[in-house]
Design a protein around this nucleic acid. Sequence first.
DNA 1: TGACAACAATTGTTAAAACAACTATTGTTT
DNA 2: AAACAATAGTTGTTTTAACAATTGTTGTCA
Lengths: 154, 154
Amino acid sequence: MMTKTLQDEIKRSRPFECLEEEVALNLARTQAHLAEPVYKLLKQEKLSGPLHNILRILLGAEPDGLPSLEIADRMVTRVPDITRLVDRLEQANLVKRERSTEDRRVVRVRITPEGKEKVESLKPKLLDLHRDQFTSLNRKELQELNRLLVKARR
Amino acid sequence: MMTKTLQDEIKRSRPFECLEEEVALNLARTQAHLAEPVYKLLKQEKLSGPLHNILRILLGAEPDGLPSLEIADRMVTRVPDITRLVDRLEQANLVKRERSTEDRRVVRVRITPEGKEKVESLKPKLLDLHRDQFTSLNRKELQELNRLLVKARR
DNA sequence: TGACAACAATTGTTAAAACAACTATTGTTT
DNA sequence: AAACAATAGTTGTTTTAACAATTGTTGTCA
């Protein structure tokens, strides 16, 4: 791709009437920018963001597992169709389902050893990637960014 | 929904081995959290995030419009299929396409008066929404957050 | 207890996104 | 000029996501 000319840069940075809107846009841009390499990495393991998210949640919920809707509730993004996400993981033998005996309405989902191995093998790669992605910010800036992101949700 | 118990809160806040990973996760969470009401608003106007994004880009590119791939290049998120996004906007009479005469490979896309009206009618609503969403941060914090988000992309 | 609301999950269907292969046009090279 | 590469967009196909309706089970309460 060509290097952008100054004029191009100016064109695409329209003036903002409102700081809040600028933050909202930069939040979306930065998230998209940083998430893409992550998705690419996950894809090599035949996972999507949500699928990986489920596995991480279940890894933290060992050994009892969790009901489907509890998983959905903990996801980063809202998922209106947790059933078929779990389906895909189950077909790949990364999780298994079991109907609860106390309350036969709930289906308890647990991560399998294969699933566990997959998440854990991804962990160091993601760690490296994230470290690499945030080199432009120093420790203090990272902490401040983190604090502001958390505060923005309240 | 029930109020979460302390135990629930503890369970879901796993310790982070690495600050960068924590920032990445909070970035994703905050973005998802703030974007959802926006999508809900857009949906009322039969628009998705990407469709609205295209309209805003084209509003800023009046009156000449832009080639399809130039639009794709300016989008917040990567879109591998700009053609059919533009298709949908064209069917709704919000944009129109025209084959360029200089270079017959390029298709120039322009926003229509209807499209313009739609984006502009959404503008104040989004403004209100974004203002409301960031009330937990003061001016200085918003500016700092914005600065860090921009810096994180370099 | 019987009726009914609430809840957990699934299924059917439609819409949207992702990916790859393809067409048409222009630029380049010898 | 002919051959070939590069570019802009489109089309076909497969996945994935979103929404609504449905099933089965449990809780409630008159």
